[in-house]
Amino acid sequence: MNDATQIVRERATALLADGTVAAVVGWAAGRGDHDRHVFVARTPEEAALLVADQYCGALAAKRVLSLLDEGKIALVARGCESRAVNRFMADRQLKRDQVHVIGWPCPGMLDPATGDALKRCTECQRRNPVLSDEVVGDPVPEPELDRFAELERFEQKTPEERRAFFQDMYESCIRCYACRNACPCCTCRVCFVDQERVGWMGEEFTADQARYYGTVRAFHTGDRCIECGECQRVCPQHLPLMLLMHKQVRDIDGLFGPYPGGGMEPEGPDPLRTYHTDDLEEFM
């Protein structure tokens, strides 16, 4: 058992035992050696099942939102989870005192199937939690990666190639909505695709409808995206969804920046929910 798992279990047990929190959100092991899934521990006995190792690929943060009725919730938070907490607070989904953040400087996660670094971790810019009530272990060095490398490579393509690429991508989408359900920015009470009224979105499984869903969802979360890459990780078709997010984040940075990315600060307006009178003008 690694140190992080040990400490997380101890801390979770203590927090649950003294009644500080009603539940601890972390990960537990599944059937296979490296299978991990998000896990909610509500008793000290369940806390002993928590795991914090290099195979905890899933973003656990969003689970907190559905547990708020149970009381204060503790969350084992890496960089991405802590940014999600900031995101929730900025989106008025969560108050700071509703969550106890057990910070966990992230060692970088591995894909359980291949043993390679998880895609979303290779594009990470923040491994240490941006906020926490306590921290498990020592801070880790922040990665010096160019998270836009794939985007830049992709932008070399001609518009026609990109058109073909996205046509393929949207034809491949099975509209399971895993990306939406996993996304920490997707907290609308009723998603636009779930509107009962005719005309919001067609239910047929076509590339057009998938494009409508994919593009609109990407844009709706574009200026709030915390770049955790969870949407791409959960996609059963392995579609490169982060391309769209990185594209917008970089555009926003260039046009209205400097912009470090969503969820870095607990407050402050999101770039598309504010304006400056001297913004760049290109529609005159």
Partner: peptide, 20 residues
């Protein structure tokens, strides 16, 4: 002002997907 920011980003997104 809001529309401007929004459209600037959205236009770039659509063009990224290949829209002339």
């Amino acid at each position: 002002y809001y529309a401007k920011r929004r459209m600037m980003v959205f236009k770039r997104l659509l063009e990224f997907e290949g829209l002339p």
